[in-house]
Computed example of a mutant assay.
Amino acid sequence: MIRKLTGEDNGKVMDFLSDEPSINLFIIGDIEAFGYDTSFQELWGEFTEDGTLIAVFLRFHNSFIPYAKGSFSVHQFAEIMKLYSDRPVLSGKAAIVEQFERAAGLSLGRKQQTFFAECRTTDHLGSTDLLVEKAAISDVDRIIQLRSTIDEFVVNENAHEMLIQAMESGTGRTFYTEEDGTMTACASTAAENSMSAMVVGVCTHKNYRRKGHATAVMQKLFKDVLEEGRILCLFYDNPDAGRIYKRLGFKEIGMWTMYR
């Protein structure tokens, strides 16, 4: 049986999701931030006859994330997606979302696969002699400017507002280094919740690369989050970046697939 979830289901839902808090970072964060009863966010659950929850399905605007620990009703969830969008954005654990490729009549966008990694310990972080600062709202313009110089980055047109919102709501933070008034590197979190946080926006000014700036900001950011008892998560598809993250204590826990 599939039905809409409500606040009364929250305890059961969080218990279900907490078995894989990193993989479920976005679902947990959106529930904590917006609950079960808004115009832009809805959640469905699939239950067995005895009331056991076996799947959760999140809609956030036109984006959808499913989570299950075993078999679930792929085609019924696909029908829900079709009610909201002709071309929905679908993402999640690869083994789960790739099952939707066989759903009849569901138009999925371009497929993108990335490695999903998590870090639970500060043991491998090391230290730095560089001065690392925590960014304030007054630094947002400089963060956006630095990101806009990175060829690999596509800066969202709403990035300025999104960064301010993350800082004000406590769902994101940024650390940076600078020299002679120039921001040389920065790293941020996003989608922070009570269990985990996503690492985003790691970048170094082109004139300051290979000098340890990115490593320094990551060391500071990672330690700050981990010492609060949260798990750090990130996506990557660049092998060179993957080697750096692994040296800092990250371990691959699976693949994340997105269709958009």
Rank of each mutant, 00 (worst) to 15 (best):
E8S: 12
N10V: 08
P21A: 08
I23Q: 14
N24K: 05
I28S: 04
G29F: 00
F34Y: 14
F34G: 06
Y36N: 07
S39N: 06
Q41M: 11
W44V: 00
G45A: 09
E46T: 08
F47S: 05
F47T: 01
A55L: 02
A55N: 03
S63K: 04
Q76P: 00
F77T: 02
I80A: 01
D86P: 12
D86G: 14
D86E: 15
V89C: 02
L90I: 06
L90K: 07
A95W: 06
V97W: 01
V97I: 12
V97P: 11
E98L: 06
Q99R: 15
R102A: 15
L106H: 05
L108A: 07
L108N: 08
F115H: 14
A117C: 07
T121D: 13
H124I: 08
L125M: 04
G126M: 03
I137T: 13
I137H: 07
I143V: 15
S148F: 08
I150A: 10
E152K: 12
N156C: 01
L163E: 00
I164W: 01
T171C: 00
T174S: 11
E179L: 15
T184K: 04
A187I: 03
Y208W: 10
G212F: 06
M218P: 01
L221S: 00
D224C: 03
V225Q: 11
I231E: 10
L232N: 01
L234M: 14
L234G: 03
D240E: 13
G242V: 09
R247Q: 15
R247C: 11
G249Q: 02
K251V: 14
M258Y: 06
Y259Q: 07
R260A: 12
